[in-house]
């Protein structure tokens, strides 16, 4: 049966008619299984920027320090400096300025809720979804306090976490359409052609002999 009762469904239909002929049948096939919230609750872990989805529980930098040190520091460093090639978790807005900006929680992340969500879904790397809600609140607070964004004793919970204002909160603009408008030219398009850089002289291929060895090894 069609669901024409709602205005959106109607606009969906109109949209569809402009598309592929073979996909036009907006029949209800009923091949899926209706499910209630309890069925997918364990998977429904996303946190919105307004805090939607945050569970009960709380933590502060003080309560989260121990968990951070034992479960995160061996990759990200005790102070969030990032060991080896593992990402750094600490920085300041100044990191975004200059020739080689670095993006990290302090310099770049616009929402504290994202940090909670990401730690909860993906960290520690290799043992995801193993932290309790209290631990995630505590570790999130610990990282935010390493970044001097909140105080050490600030308690984060479902209410206070979305209120944390990240330094780069206003740092994003929504892309809309192409930013670059190049033109077709066929004859005498540029006056002077100068080679400004060559891969044979690049960091990746000359100064870093080590890297090449790694590439070579991989080929064998």
């Amino acid at each position: 049966m069609f669901r024409l009762a709602k205005p959106l469904s109607l606009s969906v239909l109109l949209l569809l008619s402009a598309c592929d002929v073979q996909e036009q049948q907006l029949r209800i096939y009923d091949f899926g299984t209706p499910v209630s919230e309890q069925i997918y609750a364990n998977w429904d872990i996303d946190i919105g920027p307004d805090g939607a989805g945050l569970p009960a529980g709380s933590g502060s930098a003080q309560s989260g320090e121990e968990a951070y040190i034992s479960r995160c520091a061996y990759c990200h460093g005790e102070f969030g400096e990032g060991l080896g090639r593992f990402p750094e978790l600490v920085g300041t807005p100044e990191d975004l300025i200059g020739e080689s900006p670095t993006k990290n929680v302090g310099s770049y992340w616009p929402y504290a809720t994202t940090l909670w969500d990401y730690i909860n879904r993906a960290m520690p790397f290799g043992n995801a979804q193993s932290l309790s809600a209290d631990e995630v609140y505590g570790i999130t607070a610990y990282i935010l306090s390493l970044n001097n964004i909140i105080a050490e004793d600030k308690v984060l919970d479902a209410k206070t976490l979305p209120q944390v204002i990240m330094p780069n909160r206003e740092g994003f603009i929504q892309a809309s359409g192409s930013d670059i408008q190049a033109k077709i030219c066929m004859k005498n398009c540029v006056k002077e052609v100068v080679i400004t850089s060559r891969a044979s002289e690049s960091q990746a291929s000359s100064s870093a002999k080590e890297k090449e060895k790694e590439i070579g090894n991989y080929h064998r």
Binding site: I47, P49, L96, W109, T114, D117, Y118, F172, A175
Partner: peptide, 18 residues
């Protein structure tokens, strides 16, 4: 949802800092 892979990564930093 402002997930990590659409904020911290996979966003295009411009010279303006935005």
């Amino acid at each position: 949802w402002e997930m990590r892979e659409e904020t911290a990564t996979y966003t295009d930093l411009l010279p303006s800092g935005k």
